[in-house]
Amino acid sequence: MAIQEPPQVDLNRIGLTKGDYRGRPSTLCKGCGHDSISQRIISVAYDLALKPTQVIKLSGIGCSSKTPAYFMNQSHGFNGLHGRMPSMATGATLANHSLTAIAVSGDGDTVSIGLGQFKHLVRRNVPMLYIVENNGVYGLTKGQFSATADKGQELKYAGRNELPPIDVCLEALVGDCGFVARSFAGDPRQVEQLLKAALSHRGTAVIDIISPCVTFNDHDDSTKSYAYGKAHEEVISDFGFVPAYEEINIDYAEGEIADVRMHDGSHVRLKKLDSGYDPRDRFAAMRLMQEAHQNQTFLTGLIYINEDRPSLQEMEHLPETPLAQLPMEKLRPSREALAKVLADL
């Protein structure tokens, strides 16, 4: 007779279970794309063995912005103001640049009310992962168009949208963002792969994830629906992610891959470059996004990557010890220093 073994609990590199990365129960609608993204964040944080106490979760206002409560309970979270999370994130990461910042926003939060702060965040290259859970519609106020809604799109109460959409990825590219990606909540493998790479990026990493709203915008003719995404998703680029703690295996023929060494020592291995698209080419990325609009195609994958630009925190000449943890002797100059200033007046 076989001996009954205790149930095996898988521990990651720092000895935590996946449960240690869970959040509170979600209060979003059943089937919401956002919940699936929260699960992807949990998986990735567990896989990468992020230390939860060294992660901060930031968000604005909206359905998407509620989700930081639904993952990583052992991380500090701040659910701030509508469209103004980027400034808060800038301040928090200046105060403590050693933390890993994960921000979750929505299409209304990022490009309707928050476009200004979003652009300036990207421009400053604040080191953080910035996820846009994009469903083209306002959920909490029940079904108004956001600025990412496609032209000609119809909604039950809001009617027909006659305005062109603002493209999150294109705006990020124009702002010189060094990590721009688009994905689909219905493609968990790709979402996870992109999250891992983005978390290793030097500055602001923007992932625009089409995340269907099952209540207000999931009808078949909506470009932000599950059905549309499943039917139309075209992956533009494939890549491998090798975390800093793993060795790189050479399993590609010469010329087939290009290696991008990330800020934290991990690697993004770009594949199938010969197929024509190179995500290191910013102009090509902009062109691709414009063509996607013109041709109404739903392109996903890593759109642009560039590790060269220093982050805001690097430009500020900050000490290794986070500003928030500096001891008093670094904060208050001496009595003699004051006397000298006054003597010089």
Binding site: F78, G80, M85, S87, G91, A95, N96
Partner: peptide
């Protein structure tokens, strides 16, 4: 916004 984010994270902002 930056001041509040920094204050939350422990800076004197």
């Amino acid at each position: 916004g930056m001041v509040v984010g920094a204050g939350w994270a422990g800076a004197r902002s």
